[in-house]
Write a protein that binds this DNA or RNA. Structure first.
Lengths: 253, 253
DNA sequence: GGTAATAACATGTCATAACAAGTTTGGAGA
DNA sequence: TCTCCAAACTTGTTATGACATGTTATTACC
């Protein structure tokens, strides 16, 4: 058992690693179509289930995305330039050992409030799609996210897995490159509904965040109310960060 | 298309959601055995491929782990108590839109250096397992992780997927609950090998981190050298954090 | 020429089947 | 009683096949 010990890896892992290497090496650039499942079956000489197992792993790692009927594509890295670098170190240092997930509470079409209408630039007669989710960190609920989408965006969300992050979904699968976001924060007491979802007492303090996200053309695509548990509130201070880094990029990238 | 619009969800998603709800509600506590695939097939009246699709999603979300021959188990939340809370807010605020992955460079059995021997408490004749990986953030390499494991731990790593985080693997699949870790940092120039893997010039500054991780019984299980790209170095300052939070826990949890 | 039906192709879902490989259990034999 | 081995049960891997559903390109009709 010396050296690289690839000994006898399963087929699907070999295929996954091959494709992963090609993507990371830039053989497939963002949005570029990858070989279809049939082609992969032929070129690797395996069955479809094996190909799909490899693709599923790549999807899980965010390296590819698929659209039914169209094909499989190398996915776009980097969303939200503003924060792109900041988790870098912390993530790499600490990421190993916690777990996040989200649980869909409800998704439905609603008549938006005046505020939502204004933020999303919606005409008074149009509807909007409301998505309510609870986000968990290490099995504990940390936030309730109430998101509103214009119909033409929200329409596509009913059939999607909303147990994961929505932004990559917008960027990759719905092909909506995201641009700037406006955020405002305040502390307020939790109402009964939020308190219940966050397993806290009604009236306990929560961080109330409003976030309006635009696409690259500056059209609003997502207006959210995020209610964070008060005891995660302090991390707010860490948002402040050092902007004096030598360069955003450097040679070789 | 009003209201919760579950319309006609695929079977595997229904199963996944059912199990997920049960886990989050505490029906299955950490390390508790879940129903076997056969039992799930019977109770849901579906084929094995469908059950496995649901389980795979749950695995991806970190809610369960499996061990061949033994079964499927609800996984342990919370590792590394020290940092458990800190990503909470940042994660929830910003997690949506970046992507991390790791690429295995090599895994092999080596004769450990004296330093590794001492740290891992290894007798002079014994071997150790060396794992070298490159970690990516948004498709850019950010660190080279060189990890050393005692043989009795490292032995099991050859057959695992090392493209993901290793700590959850140790905790859940290998059943090694982790305890404290010692970390030391310094800046130093990159050697040729690391520079190549990180796509930077040899001699460019990197953060050189040594981390020794113990299990709960204080036995060393993992000694690592982490080489971070210099331009992620500044985030180091964010490791300093507010310890005056009201309490680690509060009512209702 | 423009449009609408259709064929071809892509991924999504699900069933049945088989064997490999790791773990546990129980029974046979010393 | 203790040890060892085989049976039974677990998850892991892979093949074949089928139909559903979404997209694109072509073809035929008006």
């Amino acid at each position: 058992m010396k050296d690289n010990a690839m000994q006898h890896q399963p087929l699907y892992l070999q295929i996954k690693d091959t494709l992963k290497k090609q993507i990371l090496e830039g053989k497939y650039v963002p949005y570029q179509k990858m070989p279809s499942e049939s082609e992969l079956m032929a070129s690797f000489g395996v069955s479809r289930i094996t190909v799909r197992q490899a693709l599923r792993d790549l999807h899980r790692e965010g390296l590819i995305f698929t659209t039914q009927g169209k094909g499989t594509f190398a996915s776009k890295p980097k969303a939200m330039q503003e924060v792109q670098h900041l988790e870098g170190f912390e993530e790499a240092m600490n990421s190993q050992g916690y777990e996040t997930s989200a649980q869909l509470v409800s998704i439905r079409e609603v008549n938006p409030t005046k505020e939502v209408q204004e933020k999303l630039n919606i005409q008074s007669k149009e509807g909007a799609v409301e998505v309510i989710r609870v986000r968990y960190l290490n099995r504990e609920p940390v936030s309730v996210d109430t998101s509103f989408f214009p119909m033409e965006v929200g329409r596509h969300l009913f059939s999607r897995d909303l147990g994961r992050d929505i932004f990559p979904l917008l960027e990759n699968e719905l092909n909506i490159p995201l641009g700037r976001a406006e955020i405002s924060l305040e502390a307020r007491p939790a109402d009964a509904n939020i308190a219940k979802l966050l397993q806290m007492e009604p009236g306990a303090p929560i961080m109330w965040v409003q976030r309006l996200t635009h696409d690259v053309n500056d059209n609003p695509v997502d207006y959210e109310y995020l209610a964070f548990r008060g005891d995660s509130y302090k991390y707010h201070f860490h948002v402040e960060r050092d902007r004096t880094r030598t360069s955003g990029k450097q040679g070789g990238l």
